[in-house]
Nucleic acid binder design. Structure first.
Lengths: 346, 346
DNA sequence: TTGAAAGCGCTAACAT
DNA sequence: ATGTTAGCGCTTTCAA
């Protein structure tokens, strides 16, 4: 069952005018007489005429929609980012089409192809954990297709990028642990391929060095799926806790890593922070209600979404090829709670 | 900067054929000779030709995209539902365009109009807390536009609907409280306008009656924004706790209501379940990590999304007007944890 | 087996 | 001030 909408032709026929006159009247062209305009406007109001955006798209060779690719929308950071993206996109008259990679490289490639073939005008991307090869994106980018990376960016491509200061976030978190007296600080990190992982581990390492603590490779564990699967977190933590010198604190570098850590500790009846302290990157707005409440590094997700979208739409609407790309770095925020600070525990 | 794609015309020119021959060759028409087909296929493969979906849409008068309107994607129930929706939609070759009402009637109306004017083929709707007037939807529906309601449905419109058995969910939750020995059970509910609110309160009331407890109007509080605003939850709980006979248990009927309840209790140092027990509807996958861990009624969100989408696309693709509408009711699931069961508390 | 032409809804250059 | 026409990319009669 198709849904037949009113067209400009219907209006023209009804009023005994040509379609171009109607078209011009609707766009308030100076060439059209006030009376005709009035007639047209009133009639199209009456029959609730809406221009067909598909016809417009075909004509203008643009769809006024942008694509988003993220690993998972059921992740606070990304759902907040998407809120930011939508707030700007809708203001600027763009639709947003969301696709999820579920941390799979293959699904990311399929989604990119799918979206690109659905004539979107630009793409906002946060790559999957598995992504090493960037051909699927570079291909588009080389042909002048607007792409903006956010959060999980890639060095190999010259485009706009919006990230948080991951180095600082991890540095501050680790420093906080040091200041609380922890000396054997391990890191639970996401996929090695991701920019955010490298940056966060960089901050972690620097904080240790600045504190006169030795960086120990065995204290760093990676989870390819960023903690999405409980099992990978379990394996990593088990490995960490089997070290000759057990860690007394953990810095987890992603949302799901952090919460799955807590789940692991709870299962094993490992007390936090008494047996081991925990701080992690997280944008959950329930971290204060967890048991224990979680110390976290929080990213300005909404703002990141807004900023990325502004950059993208700006590029889409630019008259000539954009050659100068910006990298915007936003500040993370540290929240100290019970999971690292004994004095806060009830 | 526009992104110029390859068209059928380019192929035709390059191979010295007409566009119609190319078109037919690409769709493997029986009229085209094997050699021509081969040539066309190979060349279009080589230059990476993709048909322009906008041109197709204009021709076919359908866009192969569907719209979703929910209050908030940063809500576990809805993000899980959207996952279900997308999984089916993508399989069936449809794009999904998401819009959020943020529980505002006005934004819901604007979004419906926006989406409808963007030539989507159908709409999946879960109405906002504020929605009483349905003109914006009825208008479309009357003109034969496919709409499927899920979760928050409306009686006044004859369409496909997918819901959970809210009555049973609330009944079971309340019964569980009774069995745990609570006798003064209050209900914290969402907007009075919502179907889910009425159904859940119905189950609550019936459970009380079946247990020989009296239903007390003063034990029921409504939050217009479904707990999205902490303040409304605070006001409602304060009112409940000021009753002559303080409630000893609370049944919260929505995700944010439940977690904001917990936040309130935590702030006021009210012990759960010792001072007051708490059970609520929630699809968070962290309820086991909260303090105390939360007893919840969980909805099969993913399945609801899948089912709604199947019904919608089925209606979209149906050759003749659909007159028979289905109402699918899925079972909720009860999870008992510390917030209602003292024996589970460590 | 292939090509020419019309049409989907709309706009804009080109008449009148 | 209004109408005619062509064209955006594609499919599909109709002709050859």
């Amino acid at each position: 069952m198709k849904f037949e909408a009113v067209t400009i032709k219907d209006i023209a026929k009804a009023l005994g005018l040509s379609t171009s006159t109607v078209s011009r009247a609707l766009r308030d062209s100076y060439e059209i007489s006030p009376e005709t305009k009035k007639k047209v406007l009133e009639y199209s109001e009456k029959i609730n005429y809406r221009p067909n955006p598909i016809a417009l798209s075909l004509k203008e060779k643009r769809s006024r929609s942008i694509g988003i690719i993220v690993c998972e929308i059921a992740n606070s950071f990304f759902s907040q980012t998407i809120n930011g993206i939508e707030s700007i996109a809708y203001d600027m008259g763009y639709n947003v089409i969301i696709a999820q990679s579920h941390e799979s490289y293959e699904r990311e490639v399929l989604n990119v192809q799918y979206l690109a073939s659905r004539s979107i005008d630009g793409l906002l991307v946060s790559v999957s954990s598995e992504t090493k090869d960037l051909e699927h994106l570079r291909n588009l980018h080389d042909r002048g297709f607007p792409i903006v990376f956010f959060d999980r960016v890639v060095d190999e491509m010259e485009t706009h990028k919006v990230i948080v200061d991951n180095f600082k976030g991890a540095y501050d978190a680790t420093m906080h642990l040091v200041q609380c007296g922890y000396r054997h600080i391990a890191a639970l990190a996401g996929s090695e391929y991701l920019s955010i992982t490298k940056e966060r581990l960089g901050g972690y390492r620097k904080a240790l060095e600045d504190s006169g603590l030795t960086y120990n490779e065995n204290y760093v564990q990676h989870c390819l799926h960023g903690g999405m699967l409980y099992d990978e977190v379990e394996d990593s933590l088990t490995a960490l806790l089997q070290q000759p010198q057990k860690p007394d604190a953990i810095m987890a570098s992603a949302d799901k890593l952090t919460t799955n850590c807590l789940r692991y500790f709870k299962k094993r009846k490992i007390r936090v922070p008494d047996d081991v302290a925990l701080i992690g990157f997280s944008n959950l707005d329930l971290t204060d209600l967890l048991s224990p409440s979680l110390s976290v590094v929080r990213q300005p997700a909404f703002e990141m979404g807004q900023l990325s979208t502004e950059l993208l739409i700006h590029q889409i609407e630019s008259k000539r090829p954009v050659k100068e790309f910006e990298q915007r770095i936003l500040p993370p925020q540290l929240f100290i709670r019970e999971s690292t600070d004994r004095t806060l525990v009830r």
